[in-house]
Amino acid sequence: MLLFIPTLLGLTVIVFVLIHIGGTNKLLAMYLSPRLTGAARQQIIAELDQKFHFNDPIYIQYFYWLAQIFQGNWGITNTPIFSGPVTQAIELFFPNTLMLTIFAAILIWLISIPLGVHTAVNRDKPSDNVIRVGSLTFYAMPWYLIGIILIIIFAVWLKILPINGTVNPSLVADLSWYHNGISYPTHILLIDALIHGNLVVAGNAFLHLIMPSVTLALGVMAALVRLMRGTMLETLDQDFVNFARAKGVPEKVVINLHAKNNALLPVITNFGYLVAGLLGGVVVIEDVFSYPGIGMWLTDAMINNDMGGIMGGTLLFGIILVVTSLALDLIYAKIDPRIRY
């Protein structure tokens, strides 16, 4: 379980190497505003030299860089939607993305596990075939396509869900805790609205969350449904399931307690990495729904060749993946008594 520490260090090595492939200039680009010129620029470079020791061998420089990373000095970003320290950009944009992902993850779990169990139990029946073909169809579609289809159906034709953004701007126009599209203190509008007791805004923010998270869920659900169906079918053939039946335990309990919990073990691992992957996948979704999350900032950073943004994003997603696998290990140990650390 402690393997996550070397993994994290390995991650920083890779990021450091990626930065230095382009030479010291790339590192400077991460910490230096391009708008600075003349003496001021020289002075900042001298300050950076003190921090990063540009004249030392590269493996020494790595440790100086690492020290800065640990101190929260991740460089600066300069994009049309945000310019300032990378850590601040993450602080502002990431909570929205996290909210969206968690919401989607809950949806995925709540939809695909029962569907997987249902298809396994009712194998080869019409409902099984419909669910499998349906979920696979969504899996085969690119995310933006699903998003646009949903927008056309629910926002353009039925007009029941909002098209984009996090909230109807007229609702938040004169709120004390909302400036420039950012809410305080958690930066997640839905939660902030609940903290401040503003249910109208909270409801509106919730409506704005539905379409992007459903899009995310539909896109990846098939993977989990099929996996759950497969492991469930395998488990239903196991001796202990038959033994539970031989004990006279009602079929519902056999399926939901004995078979399902065992079938869930491999599914949980996949679900964890799927959700970690979703955090990266939201880049497209946020663009389609103009949802102000980390994806929007990072696409901007990529288009503008903004080193600080790109490297900060790489490091962040790497850390998320490592933390996810740590969390999975802990959850696994909780569920499966055979695993002890």
Partner: peptide, 11 residues
């Protein structure tokens, strides 16, 4: 059943 290793639910 025949196989005591697999007859009991491991969880």
């Amino acid at each position: 059943f025949q196989e005591p290793m697999t007859t009991l639910n491991p969880l």
